[in-house]
């Protein structure tokens, strides 16, 4: 999977910034996508293209539990979020959607805006094609990988339960 990086180095980027509460009176991905990252980068929705990566700092996605943050990013075209560390509920929400979220130390220092990144989950590697560098990321737990491979929590649970 390959895409262009949008780097937000600051720690503690919260879900209010990713999708402000004033837009939570709708829950449709396409609508939410129009306001993705609005309170941190008004221009994001104009720059982002399908397949792009978000690169964040520590505690990315903290605050409100709104899964709308994941949908807004996905709806805008983002396919992968790489952060130094994720806040707990945001990370759960990513996995539960089968949305790729990986933790990689110092990633926000190494990658620049618009670098082309490529991720290989099975080898645990992120390639920076622009800089010709390779970064190792924390391997996903077996459970997280199973959730991703199932395409999210509902598929996983229904397969297990045979409901």
């Amino acid at each position: 999977m390959k895409g262009k990086a949008h780097v937000y180095k600051r720690a503690h980027i919260n879900t209010d910034e990713i999708i402000p509460a004033r837009y939570l009176n709708v829950d449709k991905e396409a609508e939410l996508a129009k306001h993705a990252m609005e309170d941190i980068d008004k221009d994001f929705v104009n720059k982002v293209q399908v397949g792009d990566f978000i690169v964040g700092g520590a505690d990315f996605g903290c605050g409100s539990s709104r899964e709308h943050a994941v949908w807004a990013l996905r709806g805008a075209g983002v396919r992968v979020v790489i952060a130094e560390k994720f806040a707990r509920i945001f990370y759960r929400n990513c996995l539960n959607n089968g949305f790729i979220a990986v933790e990689c130390k110092e990633i926000s220092e190494k990658v620049d805006d618009a670098d082309e990144l490529e991720i290989e989950i099975s080898t645990g590697e992120i390639k920076n094609n622009t800089k010709n560098e390779v970064y190792k990321f924390e391997p996903l737990s077996d459970f997280a990988e199973e959730l991703l491979n199932s395409g999210g929590l509902m598929n996983y649970v229904l397969k297990k339960k045979r409901i």
Partner: peptide, 27 residues
């Protein structure tokens, strides 16, 4: 996210997302 409030009474109580919610409502 503020579901953690209820730990004040000695319960395990935590905030989750909507997919978690759907899964828990189902199972």
């Amino acid at each position: 996210s503020h579901t953690c409030t209820h730990g004040a009474l000695g319960a395990f109580s935590t905030g989750i997302g909507s997919t978690d919610l759907a899964s828990a409502l189902t199972t």
